Every structure is written in C-alpha cells, then in structure tokens.
Lab assay of single mutants.
Amino acid sequence: GSLMYASIFGNVSAIIQRLYSGTARYHTQMLRVREFIRFHQIPNPLRQRLEEYFQHAWSYTNGIDMNAVLKGFPECLQADICLHLNRSLLQHCKPFRGATKGCLRALAMKFKTTHAPPGDTLVHAGDLLTALYFISRGSIEILRGDVVVAILGKNDIFGEPLNLYARPGKSNGDVRALTYCDLHKIHRDDLLEVLDMYPEFSDHFWSSLEITFNLRDTNMIPGSPGSTELEGGFSRQRKRKLSFRRRTDKDTEQPGEVSALGPGRAGAGPSSRGRPGGPWGESPSSGPSSPESSEDEGPGRSSSPLRLVPFSSPRPPGEPPGGEPLMEDCEKSSDTCNPLSGAFSGVSNIFSFWGDSRGRQYQELPRCPAPTPSLLNIPLSSPGRRPRGDVESRLDALQRQLNRLETRLSADMATVLQLLQRQMTLVPPAYSAVTTPGPGPTSTSPLLPVSPLPTLTLDSLSQVSQFMACEELPPGAPELPQEGPTRRLSLPGQLGALTSQPLHRHGSDPGS
C-alpha cells in the first residue's frame, strides 16, 4: 500500500510541476520586462504597450523563439521550412505564380514574418522605404497627419515599386495596425538579389506586381527641396563636378596662354591676372594647382613670374625650331616645348642647366612650328573623362623618358669634360720664339709635331656638333674642335714665318 501511495504521489506532483513550468517561465520573463521598464524609466503609455505586446506574443508563440529554433537546422532544411511557412503567400499572390521551385525557395529564405499588435506603428512618415510588405492577416491604416487616407487588409501590398527607383524613397505617411496583424516583408536588397539570379522571372514579377498603396513621397523628385535634403551631399558634389568641367572646357578654348597655377587659371584673360583667384576666387580649394602655386600668395601677385606667355621676339635665322618633346602628345598638341628640351639645344645650356634650372624654367623657349593648343594648358582630366590607368601609364612613360634624357646628358657632359682635359694635357705650358741651342744640326726643328685630335665617332658628340652648327654659343662658352686643319689655341699665330727665318745662335768662333 505504501508503494502504491508513493507512486501516485510522485506522478501527481510531476504533472503539477509540468503544468506550472510554463507559468514560471512566463513570470520570469515578465519580471525581466518590468525590470527593464523600471531601469530605463519608460513612461506609462509606452510601458503599457510593452506589457501588452509581451503578453500577446507569449500567448501567440508560447514563449518560443522561432528564429532561434529555425537557425538550429541546416540551410537546406531551413529553405523547406521557410517554404512551408510562406506557402499561403507564395501560392495566392499573383506576382509569385509561375516561378520555379528554386526561385520560390530563394524568396522564402528572404521573407521575414512580423507580428504587430493593435496601435503599433510599422512605418513612420519620413522613414526610408527599405522593404516591401505583404499583409497575411489583420488590417492596417495609413495616416497623413491625423487623416486616415487608406485601410488595407489581407493580401494587400504596400511599399514602393523598387524597379522604378535606384534609391529608396521616404514614406509619405504613417502605417498603423488596427488589429493583430501578420506581415511578410522582404528587404529591398534581398528581393533585387533574387531577381538578379532569376532574370526570366524578374520581368514577370515586375509586370504582375500591383502595389495597393504606394508609400513613396511624390514630392521626392529631382530638383525638389525634399530631394535635395535626401541627396544633399551627392547633389552638391555633382554640381561641383559639372562646374569644374564647364570651366576646364572654357580653358581649352584659349591656347595662347600657358599658366603654371593649374587648370583653373589657364583660361583667365590678361585683365584677371591681378585678381586673387581668377574664376576660382569664390572657392580657392575647388581646383588643383601645381607646386608653384604656393608662391602666388606673396605680395606682387600681378607681377609674379609664374604666369607664362609666349615671347614675341624673333628667332635667329640659324636657330632650330626646338628640341624633341618629352611626351608623344607634344608633337601634336603643344605650341611651347618643355623646359628640359631647351637644355639640349647647345653645349652652353648643358654647362648651365643644373646651376640655374629654376631660373631657366621661365626663360624664352623655342617654339614648335605648329600653332596647336598648349601642352601645359590642357586641363586636368576628371576620373569620369580619362581612366586612372591611362594617366598612370603616361606618367610612367614620361618618367622613363626623363631617365633616358638624364643618362644621355650625363654621358655627353662626361665626354666633353674628358676631351677638354685631354686638350689641356697635350698642350705645353708655354712657348717662346727663341729656342735653346741643340747639340747638333738636327735641332733646327722649332717644335715637335703635334698629332691632331682623333675624329669623334660617338653619337652623342655628333649631336653636340649638330647643335653647335645651329645654335649661337654665348661669349663665355668653350669652343669644341671642328672639322678641318686643327691648330692649338695656345700656339702663336705666325708659326709659318718662324720656319722661314734663320735661327740666331749665340757662340764663340775658336779662330777669332
């Protein structure tokens, strides 16, 4: 009898404990919600809404976190579960008819179910419309201010047509639940991603989709105040780019002037030289400038040598048109050559190039014969006009050509200096018209024969001689050997007369 009593008592207590286990969990969670309300000092109306929603959600799901349970299964099984949970929507909604099984599984994985109690606001006026909503159960109302403009029910759709707008718009009203509602919502990016994977279904979906109420604000059109608020930074940046392009296009129409201050000032006329910023005076940081632009901040801005204009002085008759350009485009679109090309026009420029290279940067340069637009006047290309890779490749080509020119210049200078040193070592320090008596009659020769300089066969020296023939050397430049009979510069000019005159010897006659 005691054994029977113990078994009955144990079973009854276990049954009672299981009955009250759900209630215990409910009270535990309710205590957490109330502690949250007390800690954050939530006001009474919002506090009442929180408690009511918790009670309804507990009775609806029995305190089970559906998302946590669903995430515990593998992905393939999750797709089947989501397809079952959203079967009513996918079967009865017209846009989803005719979709393949794979497309429906992908869509079912992207849908999220939302449960809303009465009085809950789903979308506020001015919120971004980031999702498309399908009503599965219940009814909602749409308000503009305090005026109800629409009441939607089961199988209705609200949001915005995503295929017509590249960016999400703003809501033009509040969406509030009238009863307990079940909503299926899919985010904008998720829907577009699935439709991109199934393009054959995309056309059918957009053609058959009928949005019951379009929440997009109709005033959000390009150029409206609301649109400016939504895309303020983007609009200002776009206007700045367009104004920069218009100014650079105007600059290219004036090829007669070359400016070292950047493309923003290349198009300024002579009357605007004294102004601080020219056409860019209202925004000094709008356009890029070269490193020399920092010198323009000092006094005497109108007389600054940074602004270059072609000189009108005539060229000498024998002067060549100019050196070879550094870039391939210089032959086609440049009416002034790079300062480095002028360094190779003569030997005198070679000796004085490194010492006063900055001073020569603004000297007169030889002109190319074609009066085409200036290379320095070409505006900086924006990322939309020329690819970045093209600019980098041009810079690399320019750097390689500069290296080759520097190597060639160093070799030419070394060769010229070597020839000058050899000339100085071969010439005796001094010569006299009267020579010392020699031991015999073989001493009648006034000077030792001097062998002429070897013929220069280097390509670089031939180019130097060509430049010497075309360029007029300055007075202080050293002379180079030329073709024809060679003669030492330090010898007297009348050596031929010395050989014809008898030598005057000093000596005593033994017979006297």
Score class of each variant (00 low, 15 high):
Leu261Glu: 13
His504Met: 06
Arg386Phe: 13
Gly440Thr: 06
Ile157Pro: 02
Pro429Leu: 11
Asp127Arg: 03
Pro439Met: 09
Leu376Ser: 13
Glu331His: 10
Leu417Val: 14
Asp296Lys: 11
Asp412Ser: 05
Glu297Met: 04
Leu195His: 03
Ala497Gln: 07
Leu164Ile: 11
Thr457Gly: 11
Lys185Phe: 12
Thr499Trp: 10
Leu480Val: 10
Thr218Asn: 07
Glu472Gly: 12
Cys470Gln: 08
Lys154Val: 10
Gly507Ile: 11
Arg247His: 13
Leu128Gly: 04
Ser374Tyr: 10
Leu473Gln: 07
Asp174His: 08
Pro446Gly: 10
Leu419Ser: 06
Ser432Phe: 10
Glu471Val: 12
Ser271Met: 11
Arg358Lys: 04
Val149Ile: 12
Ser259Glu: 10
Asp156Val: 02
Asn155His: 10
Glu231Pro: 09
Asp329Thr: 10
Leu326His: 14
Arg216Tyr: 02
Cys337Tyr: 08
Lys239Gln: 10
Pro199Lys: 04
Ser460Phe: 04
Arg408Ile: 08
Glu319Leu: 04
Glu253Leu: 09
Pro492Phe: 11
Met327His: 13
Thr444Gly: 06
Asn349His: 06
Gly256Glu: 13
Thr499Lys: 06
Met424Pro: 10
Gln421Ser: 08
Cys181Glu: 01
Phe205Arg: 02
His204Met: 04
Ile157Asp: 02
Pro437Cys: 13
Ser381Met: 15
Gly322Arg: 03
Glu392Tyr: 01
Arg137His: 06
Arg422Leu: 06
Ala260Ser: 08
Pro492Cys: 11
Arg360Thr: 08
Gly269Pro: 06
Pro510Ala: 06
Ser462Trp: 10
Thr444Tyr: 14
Ser445Val: 12
Tyr431Leu: 09
Gly145Lys: 13
Leu398Ser: 03
Asn155Leu: 05
Met468Glu: 12
Ser357Ala: 10
Glu200Asp: 10
Pro255Thr: 10
Pro320Lys: 10
Ala343Cys: 03
Glu471His: 13
Thr407Glu: 05
Thr436Ile: 11
Ser345Asn: 08
Gly256Trp: 04
Arg273Gly: 11
Pro454Arg: 11
Leu215Ala: 01
Arg167Met: 04
Thr218Ile: 13
Pro446His: 08
Asp459Val: 04
Ser334Pro: 13
Asp146Val: 03
Ala477Phe: 13
Arg216Thr: 09
Glu295Ile: 10
Val347Met: 13
Pro502His: 08
Leu419Val: 10
Gly126Met: 01
Asp196Cys: 12
Leu402Gln: 04
Leu380Gly: 11
Met220Leu: 15
Gln494Leu: 08
Thr435Pro: 13
Gln466Leu: 08
Glu324Asn: 15
Ser302Phe: 13
Ala150Met: 04
Ala411Pro: 03
Leu209Ser: 03
Glu200Gln: 07
Pro317Leu: 06
Ser410Gln: 15
Gly232Ser: 09
Met468Ser: 10
Trp206Pro: 03
Cys181Ala: 06
Ser341Glu: 13
Thr435Glu: 10
Pro225Lys: 11
Asn214Gly: 02
Ser271Lys: 04
Leu405Gln: 04
Gly256Ser: 11
Gly264Ser: 11
Tyr198Arg: 02
Pro321Gln: 09
Pro373Cys: 12
Asn163Lys: 08
Ala411Tyr: 05
Asp146Phe: 02
Val416Tyr: 05
Leu498Phe: 09
Leu209Ile: 12
His504Lys: 10
Asp412His: 08
Arg176Phe: 02
Asp251Cys: 06
Ala266Thr: 12
Gln237Ser: 11
Ala166Gly: 12
Met197Asp: 14
Asn349Cys: 03
Glu160Ala: 03
Glu324Thr: 15
Leu409Gln: 01
Asp156Gln: 05
Gly359Ala: 13
Ser374Cys: 08
Gly496Asn: 05
Met424Lys: 09
Leu152Ile: 05
Ala477Cys: 10
Asp190Pro: 01
Leu376Glu: 09
Gly233Met: 10
Ala166Asp: 12
Ser313Phe: 14
Ser465Val: 08
Pro481Glu: 14
Ser285Ile: 07
Gly256Ala: 10
Gln466Gly: 12
Pro475Phe: 06
Ala411Arg: 11
Leu473Val: 10
Met413Gln: 05
Gly507Glu: 11
Val464Leu: 11
Val391Lys: 05
Leu308Gly: 12
Pro325Gly: 05
Glu257Pro: 11
Asp296Val: 14
Glu160Asp: 04
His506Met: 09
Ser290Ile: 15
His204Ala: 13
Ile142Trp: 01
Gln418Asn: 05
Ser171Asp: 01
Ile135Leu: 06
Leu164Glu: 14
Pro339Asn: 12
Glu160Lys: 02
Pro168Lys: 10
Phe201His: 11
Phe134His: 01
Glu200Met: 04
Gly493Cys: 09
Arg144Glu: 11
Glu200Pro: 03
Phe234Met: 12
Glu364Cys: 04
Ile142Arg: 01
Glu210Pro: 04
Arg307Asp: 06
Gly267Leu: 10
Asp190Glu: 08
Glu193Gln: 07
Ser286Glu: 12
Glu295Tyr: 03
Pro481Leu: 10
Pro437Ile: 11
Ser345Cys: 06
Ala397Cys: 15
Pro339Cys: 04
Ile140Asp: 01
Arg137Gln: 07
Gly232Met: 09
Gly159Trp: 01
Thr179Ala: 04
Gly138Phe: 03
Glu200Gly: 06
Val450Asp: 05
Ala268Thr: 08
Pro225Gln: 14
Ser432Tyr: 04
Lys332Ser: 10
Gly476Ala: 11
Ala131Gly: 12
Glu328Val: 11
Ser393Ile: 13
Asp182Cys: 08
Gly267Tyr: 11
Ala177Leu: 02
Gln401Leu: 13
Asn219Arg: 14
Ser285Asn: 10
Gly281Val: 13
Gly287Glu: 10
Arg245Val: 11
Thr372Asp: 07
Leu426Thr: 13
Asn163Ser: 12
Tyr133Cys: 10
Gly355Ser: 08
Gly359Asn: 14
Ala268Asp: 08
Ser465Arg: 07
Ser451Asp: 09
Pro502Gln: 12
Glu257Lys: 07
Gly153Ala: 08
Ser235Glu: 10
Glu406Pro: 03
Asn214Ala: 04
Leu365Ser: 08
Val194Lys: 01
Leu420Arg: 03
Asp156Tyr: 01
Arg386Ala: 10
Pro373Met: 10
Ala260Val: 12
Pro222Ala: 11
Asn155Glu: 11
Asp356Gly: 09
Leu491Met: 06
Gln254Trp: 13
Ser259His: 10
Pro339Asp: 11
Gly226Phe: 09
Asn163Trp: 07
Glu319Trp: 07
Val149Gln: 08
Pro373Lys: 12
Pro437Phe: 08
Gly476Trp: 15
Trp206Met: 05
Gly507Val: 09
Ser235Lys: 12
Asn219Phe: 08
Ala266Trp: 07
Ser285Glu: 15
Glu471Arg: 10
Pro288Leu: 05
Leu402Gly: 04
His204Trp: 07
Leu420Cys: 07
Leu326Ala: 13
Arg167Lys: 10
Tyr431His: 08
Pro475His: 12
Leu326Thr: 12
Asn214Trp: 01
Gln421Asp: 11
Asp335Tyr: 05
Ile151Asp: 01
Ser303Asp: 11
Pro502Trp: 15
Ser293Ala: 15
Tyr133Leu: 03
Glu324Gly: 13
Ile350Trp: 06
Glu472Tyr: 07
Leu340Glu: 04
Gly507Phe: 06
Phe467His: 14
Ala430Thr: 10
Cys368Leu: 08
Thr252Gly: 13
Gly355Asn: 05
Leu183Lys: 01
Arg240Gly: 08
Thr457Cys: 12
Asn163Val: 04
Ser393Asn: 15
Pro387Phe: 13
Thr228Trp: 06
Ser224Gly: 09
Pro284His: 11
Thr457Asp: 09
Pro437Met: 11
Leu419Asp: 04
Gly359Ser: 10
Ala477Lys: 12
Gly138Asp: 01
Ser286Pro: 11
Glu324Val: 14
Arg144Met: 09
Pro305Asn: 15
Lys250Met: 10
Thr436Arg: 12
Pro387Asn: 08
Arg408Val: 10
Arg273His: 01
Gln494Arg: 10
Ala469His: 14
Ile142Val: 10
His184Pro: 01
Val427Cys: 06
Thr130Pro: 04
Arg408Gln: 08
Pro371Ser: 09
Arg167Pro: 10
Ser381Cys: 05
Ser348Gly: 10
Leu395Gln: 05
Ala260Phe: 10
Ile135Phe: 01
Pro485Glu: 15
Phe213His: 05
Glu193Leu: 06
Val148Asn: 03
Thr436Glu: 12
His506Asp: 05
Arg265Phe: 13
Thr457Ser: 05
Tyr198Lys: 02
Ile350Leu: 12
Leu376Tyr: 13
Pro383Cys: 04
Lys250Tyr: 12
Asn338Lys: 05
Gly233Leu: 11
Leu129His: 03
Pro485Met: 15
Thr130Lys: 09
Ser352Tyr: 04
Tyr165Thr: 09
Leu458Trp: 13
Leu503Pro: 05
Ser374Asn: 01
Asp156Ser: 05
Asn377Thr: 10
Arg216Ala: 08
Asp459Leu: 05
Arg388Gly: 13
Asp459Gly: 08
Ala177Thr: 12
Ala370Cys: 10
Arg315Ile: 15
Arg176Trp: 01
Arg216Pro: 03
Asp251Thr: 10
Asp356Pro: 12
Asn163Gln: 08
Met197Thr: 11
Ala177Asp: 01
Ser333Gly: 12
Pro305Cys: 13
